[in-house]
Write a protein that binds this DNA or RNA. Structure first.
Lengths: 128, 128
DNA sequence: CATACTTAGTATCGAATTGAAACCTAAGGA
DNA sequence: TCCTTAGGTTTCAATTCGATACTAAGTATG
């Protein structure tokens, strides 16, 4: 093996626990949630409004997983209708810093990807 | 064309094309495939053996999507049983560089995540 | 000649995940 | 009493996934 992923565990082994982390990272909702929490703690319904297209179920599920993994913290405040504030943990912050790179990549290279898709789709074997 | 939100395109809008890219990135198999191709072109069955747990179907599907997005190239070589070589494109390489960060993060912080999971699971409302 | 084996997929089917929508709980206000 | 808010959970259909089987074309083996 060469340089990139050669320190101890490797994600290419099915039994490696790194797969657990990779599965969490490879979740578009988790990426978006962590991105928002990076700036400030946010309540449940505000997250729901800011992330267009997410369902309550997926938001709830994803937050629970992120909390379990120690990436976000959950604080229930006993106000009138109880409000719950989600915040990013120091560990989550280190991950979100990595994910920032991805979000930027997506926004930077989206055009090239769309052009590639068009070319592929108009190619001979494109239609299916 | 960019979306009209605050800073260029933003992935938090459901209709934003950036979501397309985010969906591709948020795919554990794509992350692993790009990581392998980074080093050298690889054939289909070799990829299948190196990425433990991937099915032929998912490998085939994921490669097709990556090709469509212009992230990997496909070259069919008319050898005996035809061999097909997959390689990373320059565009794919810029993405994989970002993903390296994630793979390293996963391998570096796996222990902290597992500890957090244990603590969560033994916590008050952990099991149901 | 017939069978088995190769690579790179596709087809099919049950299982798991997701999405959309409705429902639930608890407290305050009209 | 009913409505509203906040934060979920439940339900069910649709999509996706994983495992297995099958295709194609050519080679090697018996």
């Amino acid at each position: 093996m060469k340089s990139t992923t050669t320190k101890g565990s490797n994600a290419y082994a099915a039994a490696c626990p790194t797969r657990v982390v990779l599965d969490r990272i490879a979740d578009k909702w988790a990426v978006l949630i962590l991105g928002l929490l990076q700036e400030e703690p946010i309540r449940f319904n505000r997250l729901r409004k800011q992330i267009e297209g997410i369902s309550q179920k997926m938001l709830s599920q994803t937050l629970k997983k992120l909390e379990r993994d120690g990436l976000v913290g959950r604080k229930a405040i006993p106000t009138v209708p109880v409000t719950v504030e989600y915040s990013i943990t120091p560990l989550g912050r280190t991950l979100s810093a990595m994910l920032d790179g991805l979000r930027v990549w997506a926004e930077t290279h989206i055009e090239k990807v769309l052009i590639a898709q068009k070319r592929y789709d108009s190619g001979s074997r494109g239609s299916r």
